[in-house]
Design a protein around this nucleic acid. Structure first.
Lengths: 389, 389
DNA sequence: TTGTAAGCGTTATCAC
DNA sequence: GTGATAACGCTTACAA
């Protein structure tokens, strides 16, 4: 055991090359370089306070090798009960905490699933996270969450960080800006499983978890029609997202089925944001011949419209029917209640998590990409109920 | 260059001990062990598809050492522009992605801040996360979030996982069950900075970020009194949490200041949960001589009470005043609107993040534990407004 | 300016 | 049942 000639520290002495064929050492504690011209010249003093106890410390303390310690710690077979107990005791005594970093490095896996969501402000993604978290935790995985903030650039940098941190799998819902998918292809190339949910795209070979946007949208518009609304506007999302396209498609299908005239100037597709919702809403409500109902792509937009209608003295549901999408917490309580589509958020999270686990844990055999479509539910409230039915 | 005698693979050959004083190898691709009795016997075939490119691959490819590559990649000084460019080009060509795990291991830091929250269902914690996330991302840190689910056991296991993963600092809001703080003391002992927020405790030496619960509570109750309510009940949280104690204290202080009689049977302290809120709410509303106002510890509880009052035909605010705490999204819209205390959620997140950054980045010098008290705001809505004022 | 080699804390293989 | 030792991928002090 070597001690530092300057500070007498032991335990922070490291080899540092050779000087005239002699081993040279450095004390990491006081940064002093020396050779051992006179071995055993100094006495050990105390442990560095910065040092975290490692399996080697345990090994030294009870006089076994680090491999023995490792085995004991992991409950491997072929180890004598006494040795194991000694190791365990010493580990507790030295307050040993395994270093997951080293473990991950040698195992080339991290037991961590990454998740990238575009935003956090609505209740949708937090609820998805709750579901995913539950399943992953149960299976012994960690969940690392990043937020792309609806920015493509941030999303790309998030995926880079995930890659660098060697997550075992990625769950992602794309931003409304995302049109290029190279950053996702990297995952395919590296064999890192990927599951898309909610905001999916068609250009990536990976399981996708979505809801039946088309049907949901269809039933929402049908519901409006059955309540006597004729001139229904659609306030949609950006068309590069499949959710937006599907919801638009459902709208058109319902209108066509019931022989309603679709006025193209009453269909607006745009980015998700409160500001945009207000601008588009104002446009629709200020139209000379304004619609008698609006189906919005999400509740936030629908709520903006309801508030605006209130300001303008337009009566809901008599003069204007409104339907949203997602069932935010406030939707049940606003005005006469907002009719909306409830998404099974927790189940979306659980399903994506189950998918990723299956992919991560399947040995080499990558399953064929698949798509899970979960069911939504039309929640009828006052904002659209003109028929006493 | 050695190839596997069985599958001809090169690049996945690793040394594997000795056999009769001869170096033994293993092919990681086909798991075949062999020695080199006849060197150069097999020809290289192709790279393993599993292999991730490392700095060594780059080094080999352009004929320099790995240290040179490392330096080039990190833009160190003292490297010739040509070499650097060659390294950068080759890195791009080989699609090199740095291994953060290895980096972290050698640097003993992860650039990751951990955050443990008790729940996710209310908007409070998601909003705090948004704030913290923003500041940390800005500063180049990752944020790993875990959810303790209001369970002490889960919280302890979460802190263990955080420790194992060697986060650089921890942000934590305690569960309502937490009464023992040994799992936090470990962080102190290891010199890992810690910041408590919202659900803090007094037994840990660490910066705390809270709101002025006492004042907020005082002003809420005062507001009720000024609106002519006399017999005000308090539906509080578990008393081991300081938030609960402070809100109770504020309630008492306001009642005393205005000479109101405090009826102890109208003060209930209990766990946060929808079920409990219903049970306690029912108890209060069914009292023979029921209170004419209720100040609840959070909006979820207040909303349960409002719904129950509606069922029972108790008029709000005429027969019952209600005030909550936190300003959930739905609170603005429920019934006549719920009067509540708005907390600066994003700022709470930002402040905790700034604290932890300061602690993490301060060299050795640990600042004295401090407490930041952020201001709340009384949001008056219909549920408590009996005075026309 | 570049190369050499030790070290970060583990796991796992093989020898004994 | 236990001990050596290579390996995981990287940084860095020192030598060249």
């Amino acid at each position: 055991m070597i001690g530092c000639p300057k500070c007498s520290e032991v335990g922070s002495i490291m080899k540092a090359g050779y000087v005239r064929n002699k081993q040279r050492y450095v004390c990491k504690d006081c940064n002093y370089f020396f050779t051992l011209s006179d071995p055993g010249q100094v006495l050990p003093r105390k442990k560095s306070r910065r040092h975290q106890t490692t399996i080697i410390d345990i090994a030294k303390a009870i006089g076994v090798s680090n491999s023995t310690v490792s085995r004991a710690l992991h409950g491997h077979a072929d180890i004598s009960p006494e040795t194991r107990q000694a190791v365990l005791d010493m580990a507790a005594q030295l307050d040993y905490q395994p270093n997951q970093l080293a473990y991950n490095l040698v195992k080339s896996r991290t037991n961590t699933i990454g998740m990238i969501v575009p935003e956090f402000t609505n209740s949708f993604f937090p609820n998805v996270i709750i579901g995913a978290h539950e399943v992953l935790t149960e299976a012994g995985y960690n969940l690392t969450i990043m937020q792309s903030n609806e920015s493509y650039a941030v999303e790309v940098s998030n995926t880079k960080a995930m890659l660098a941190n060697r997550i075992d799998g990625l769950l992602i819902s794309l931003t409304q800006e995302t049109n290029n998918y190279d950053h996702l292809k990297v995952f395919e190339k590296r064999g890192i499983p990927l599951v898309l949910f909610n905001r999916v795209c068609d250009h990536v070979e990976a399981p996708k978890v979505v809801v039946n946007d088309f049907d949901a949208s269809f039933s929402a518009v049908e519901h409006l029609i059955l309540n006597g609304y004729e001139r229904i506007a659609h306030l949609g999302g950006p068309l590069n997202l499949r959710v937006s396209r599907e919801r638009l498609r459902g709208y058109r299908a319902a209108m066509e089925k019931y022989g309603k005239n679709i006025e193209e100037n009453m269909i607006i597709q745009g980015m998700f944001s409160q500001q945009k919702a207000r601008i588009y809403g104002k446009y629709l409500l200020d139209l000379e011949n304004r619609p008698d109902a609006i189906f919005a792509v999400n509740d936030s937009a629908a709520i903006e419209i309801m508030l605006m209608a209130l300001e303008k003295g337009i009566k809901i549901p008599d003069q204007l029917g409104v339907v949203g999408f997602s069932d935010n917490p406030e939707s049940a309580y606003i005005g006469p209640g907002l009719t909306t589509i409830r998404q099974p958020t927790a189940e979306i999270g659980k399903t994506t998590a189950k998918w990723i686990l299956q992919l991560v844990e399947s040995e080499e055999e990558v399953k064929l990409p698949n798509e899970t479509v979960l069911k939504t539910e039309l929640v009828v409230r006052g904002s659209s109920k003109r028929n006493p039915s």
